[in-house]
Design a protein around this nucleic acid. Structure first.
Lengths: 162, 162
DNA sequence: CGAAAGTTCATGCGTCTGCATCTACTTTAG
DNA sequence: CTAAAGTAGATGCAGACGCATGAACTTTCG
């Protein structure tokens, strides 16, 4: 037995997930990723949006769907290509800030322009301007909600055994 | 220069993408993936929804975000575990149908139940029933639109040279 | 019909990924 | 202050992934 609410949740999530897969698949096929993989672009993009003095690995990791070790090595590769730099964090000798270099920023902009055009072509006239606004609003709220949740939960049983 | 429409597209896509990342991250942390990775579950789930005589690899591949070779090997592993079988396709000796075994179906259901509970817990009260319906509708339409597109496009220039 | 082109899936291979763990610090608490 | 616990990030390693390509068909077209 599944409650109607749980069902609506599962349905909405599946639709969202499948839509994401379809769009990513389409965007991936575009000739925009010769210099940067999507994940690499994601990192540069996130950095380009963040504060001028960069972001810590931990912070980057909340936006990029990659394990901490994988992200660490992805950043290694970007450093090797001169697109980002690792710098020290004031007051915390463990941490690392990741900062865009001029080359990195330029590349992000170059790829970003083409990527945006690609997105525009992919979404086309599927949704009206109002619908796009609604979609943005709903997904933003969904993200904020989930991000505010206490990490992991035991979902084996719906009811706690008292 | 970017048109307002292209901007709305890019914004909506980013929100959708980030929401997906946040939810996947949350769901991945749940103790539901001991027996099956998310991608393996995705394959079993897709099969459980499809026709009784299974799906071809090509068809599976449209739903699962994985390259054809990777999917082929993922299916290898599922076969090795006795969760699916490969069968011949009538009228096409190249093809392979992938069919759920009883064990595979049972496992999908078992994991699926817990996964649905996990989704329910994750989405919580973020959106109202109406909003969930709206989100489902918008993402469904988005997916159908993108799926109907002619594969890859050159997006370097916005205007076709006549 | 028969050759060329296209499709479906599998496989070799180098790279990327995640898990577990380690190091180096920072924070908490006795 | 010091020991224990916690946190940030790096690294060894086995396994998974994608790209390029191969093998076995099927379809198209002269």
């Amino acid at each position: 037995m599944m409650s109607a609410h749980a069902m609506a949740h599962a349905t909405a999530w599946e639709s969202l997930f499948r839509a994401q897969v379809a769009v990513v698949r389409h965007l991936a096929a575009d000739d925009v990723w010769e210099e940067l993989t999507m994940k690499e672009y994601d990192v540069l993009f996130t950095l380009s949006r963040g504060p001028a003095d960069g972001l810590r690995l931990k912070e980057l990791n909340t936006d990029v769907l990659l394990s901490q070790p994988s992200l660490s090595r992805l950043v290694d590769r970007l450093v090797a290509r001169g697109l980002v730099e690792r710098r020290a964090v004031a007051d915390d000798l463990r941490g690392t800030r990741v900062v865009l270099t001029d080359d990195g920023r330029a590349l992000q902009r170059r790829v970003g322009r083409r990527h945006v055009a690609s997105i525009d072509a992919a979404l086309g006239s599927a949704l009206s301007a109002d619908e796009l606004t609604t979609l943005t609003d709903l997904t933003d709220r969904l993200r904020n909600h989930v991000a505010s949740l206490p990490a992991a939960a035991r979902t084996t049983s719906t009811k706690e055994p008292s």
